[in-house]
């Protein structure tokens, strides 16, 4: 079983993840963009591409709508997403540079490793708390419960499980894995070689891997694709649209008023 999870399933999961995403995004791309029937630019219309770009930034990077209309949701949602991207990025650079990624911005290798650990611990905890907050909100708010399907809860539970196991490995080094070990494991995977023996002894690592791969398999067929959906939707809705200039043809107000148009003394009609 462990062998399957760490040696075989990764290839399957990655394939399903990749092809599934292509399938899903392909379906979106296959549907016609508006512009053949009508425009649904949201008003107030941006007047320059920069203004349109700013809407993308403020909504996608800052969650401005959520902040404005439901601050109590923003408190959980925004830190959770930022922490998620930090943690994902941290996995990539941390394992690739063995925790010495900050050497490239002038730190000593020891300090870099310390910083890597610190950031990982902080964001790992923010991510976990954010997810729990969102789950509690989904369960406790009547209106949100009314719109939830079983899958909406399961996505959160799955994410919480992944992060919880990850955090255990981070906060309790005796259960964790060293940067070098993970590096070696992925190197073996990428080179299609047998993975090193030591990964089989770490139950937490195997669990973490299993859950992540389940997520990868589910991802393309779930609402989690909102990561791409929001760009696609805003691409339709936040576009430059300008009005024709005002001003009516052959109209000279001053002349009309001098003539007294409309006044009975001027002989009536225009």
């Amino acid at each position: 079983m462990s062998y399957f999870i760490v040696q075989i399933l990764p290839y399957i999961a990655l394939t399903i993840f990749g092809l599934g995403l292509l399938f899903r995004l392909g379906r979106w791309a296959a549907a016609r963009l508006l512009g053949t029937s009508h425009e649904i630019t949201l008003a107030p219309f941006p007047q320059t591409p920069w203004q349109a770009g700013w809407i993308f930034v403020r909504e996608i990077a800052l969650f401005r709508n959520i902040f404005f209309f439901e601050p109590t949701l923003w408190v959980g949602a925004w830190p959770m997403h930022i922490a998620l991207f930090m943690v994902l990025g941290g996995h990539a650079v941390g394992f690739y540079f063995l925790g010495e990624q900050f050497v490239y911005i002038g730190m000593s290798p020891e300090l870099s490793k310390f910083m890597s650990n610190l950031l990982g611990s902080v964001f790992g905890m923010v991510l976990l708390l954010g997810l729990i907050y969102l789950l509690v909100r989904r369960v406790s708010l009547g209106r949100v419960r009314q719109i939830s399907n079983p899958s909406d809860y399961l996505h959160l539970v799955l994410l919480i499980a992944i992060v919880a196991v990850g955090d255990i490995m981070r906060y309790f080094p005796q259960y964790g894995m060293h940067y070098e070990e993970v590096y070696e494991y992925f190197k073996a995977l990428i080179l299609l070689q047998p993975v090193p023996e030591f990964v089989f002894h770490n139950v937490f690592f195997i669990t973490h891997m299993l859950l992540v791969q389940i997520l990868m398999i589910v991802f393309p067929f779930s609402k989690l694709v909102h990561l791409f959906g929001m760009f696609a939707m805003r691409w339709i809705e936040n576009r430059v649209h300008t009005d024709p200039a005002p001003g009516l043809p052959n109209v000279d107000v001053a002349a009309a008023r001098a003539k007294g148009t409309g006044l009975p003394s001027a002989g009536g009609a225009a």
């Binding site: 899903r24 016609r32 209309f69 439901e70 791409f228 959906g229 696609a232």
Partner: peptide, 23 residues
Amino acid sequence: RKKFRSFVLAMESCVKCGLCAEN
């Protein structure tokens, strides 16, 4: 659904956050 991408996206990328309810 083949004709309107806006419709497909409304069908497929809602996360059910519930922000719309009170608005």
